[in-house]
Design a binder for these strands. Structure first.
Lengths: 337, 337
DNA sequence: ATTCAATTTGGAATCGATTCCAATATTAGA
DNA sequence: TCTAATATTGGAATCGATTCCAAATTGAAT
């Protein structure tokens, strides 16, 4: 470790120019003679000089830093994609991310915000770990804030969420395109729960059916509790029907996991006897299930990216952006016999 | 958004004291009369003053920030625990984390380091996403760096890794304590692979057997390719043995997932016919498998925490810390009939 | 060669904190 | 009440960059 870093004064002295000139070179100011620029450049490189961030941000009042407040990161594997998308977007614009997990605790949330204001972050990305409504305290109004995978009921903040309806529609359409007409849907929770996903996915399912002129049959629809076991339960009910479904759109991959269990136990094989499509693209489940599960991916990376780009664009309209959910094709869908 | 933040001068003027006094109050300097302190405190609160981080770190030459470089965060769900552990430990000491994902790309790694040096972070935590050897460029020597879930073959850096041997031993002992003597082991990869986990877990398995005076039977051991399918393959081989195992220690939860499939297909039930224990505690798999999988947890949170605490302790010995892996009891282990 | 405009450069002032020294206020002891 | 020691305070100097203005240089036009 070297004793002390060089300062801009050291460089100016070594290059026999004024500090202003060095600063201009550092900031690619065009008002510098080419020969001077090259000379200063070379001195900078020779000495391995690195400007001090603290000094720079004190003077420019810009921290080149964005705060990322995550709620309960540790509870979901998606978090990494969200952070990665945000980080990549930030990096592209020369900024870094200060990450705090607020653990879904309102007090911590407030303290996190304070820490970030102190550090003069240029904006805040607030990310929930699954699609939900969120009520941020007013204190967040004092700094540009973008919500990710959540939304403010009063539209006080711009937000970006997955297009659940489009995703569910795509899932259902995919089954339809494979010739299926009797398509069951296992909702990923009670439809009257506060979280919007089950309702919106159900909505997409119905839209796809209706677009294809297939009547929605309520007996083909089952509300699970969101866990694998209750998904299995639903699957059993549906295949016991007089006119059972030939394909199942599961509200989440977790449910699909339970469904696989139930179907295999009944001696049905996937996708020969019945096709399955999931939702969420929980890699660890979907890719390692046997056969691998086709599913709709949540666009976490893209949402993280969008949030940063929007934040740095300087726009101030509180739009609610929908990001579409792509299909991830794997092995669980077959043609209707 | 208010037009401009207050500075320490504003507070000094408003409180009719010198800036030095305000600074002393801010930093809990005992050399301030109680009455003065209270008065200044109240003005600070009334105006909602927040000190500028940039100014402070310029003057003190401390950024109160730690760099967290992650390799390929997006490829594993563990990352969040690592980050959480580090963040919590940092937060306890008033520091925040600057997070960059280096995507397992040496060039990006170097650029990440540079970005962090520029920002004068007080140290760096370099986290791999699974237990492995890692060769950091020399440039990391210029700043205190701690390795997490990886280690430097030349011991140039302190590091913290999971105690795989202890974990595997615990897994095997748990089965032994349930009365099992014929315990199979499906290694989570070829033993001659560069990554150390398969070897170490195998080692722990053998130690537990030997401690219990059970002879190691090579026919009960099977090297998988690390994926669920090949785990299933192994399981089939083992149960076809003349004297088949009554319990299986799977090198990872992913393998256990394949094993579940294979066993169910053979009409065996868990844990009545055969007990299973995994390794890794991949929540999404382990908790939702049916029956839920007992497994050994990797101490990611604790490793993250340890790294920060060690970094901030100022120690400079390049120790290699082992963190023990606890058992997570679920439903897949039963008493030997 | 001279004038004037356009480039290029140097360096003082500035950002907002901490720190240190000197000045002032307080207290204890006689 | 006075003195000496101690406690408290004010404010200039400092950290290392950027920015702006004035000065110096260059180049073009006559």
């Amino acid at each position: 470790m070297d004793s002390r870093r060089y300062t801009i004064q050291d460089i100016a002295r070594a290059a026999k120019v004024g500090v202003g000139t060095v600063s201009r070179v550092l900031n690619d100011d065009p008002n510098v003679k080419d020969s001077t620029r090259e000379h200063v450049q070379s001195v900078i490189e020779r000495l391995g000089y690195q400007p001090s961030f603290a000094a720079r941000s004190l003077r420019t009042q810009k921290s080149q830093t964005i705060g990322f407040i995550a709620d309960a990161v540790a509870t979901t594997p998606y978090a990494v994609h969200l952070i990665k998308g945000a980080q990549d977007a930030a990096w592209n614009q020369g900024k870094l991310l200060l990450v705090i997990d607020a653990d879904n605790d309102p007090k911590l949330r407030e303290r996190a915000l304070e820490s970030m204001l102190e550090r003069e972050v240029e904006g805040i990305v607030y990310a929930a770990m699954f699609h939900q409504e969120v009520n941020l305290p007013d204190s967040f109004q004092q700094i540009p804030t973008v919500l990710v995978d959540c939304f403010d009921p009063h539209s006080h903040f711009p937000s970006v969420v997955p297009d659940e309806v489009q995703g569910a529609k795509l899932a259902t359409q995919t089954l339809i395109r494979h010739g299926h007409k009797r398509i069951g849907h296992i909702a990923n929770d009670r439809l009257d729960i506060v979280y919007p996903a089950p309702r919106l996915r159900f909505e997409g399912y119905k839209q796809a059916l209706s677009d294809a002129h297939i009547d929605f049959d309520p007996t083909l629809m089952c509300e699970s509790d969101g866990n694998a076991l209750s998904g299995a339960q639903c699957a059993l009910e549906l295949i016991a029907l007089a006119d059972p479904p030939t394909a199942l759109f599961c509200g989440t991959d977790r449910i699909a996991m339970g469904v696989y269990d139930a179907l295999k136990e009944q001696g049905l094989s996937i996708p020969e006897d019945i096709s399955i499509i999931g939702f969420d693209n929980q890699e660890i489940i979907a890719a390692y299930l046997n056969p691998a599960l086709s599913t709709i991916a949540l666009p976490h990376y893209e949402m993280g990216q969008w949030a940063i780009d929007y934040l740095l664009s300087g726009s101030t309209t509180n739009i609610q952006e929908l990001v579409s959910c792509p299909l991830v094709k794997r092995a669980s869908i077959g043609l209707k016999a």
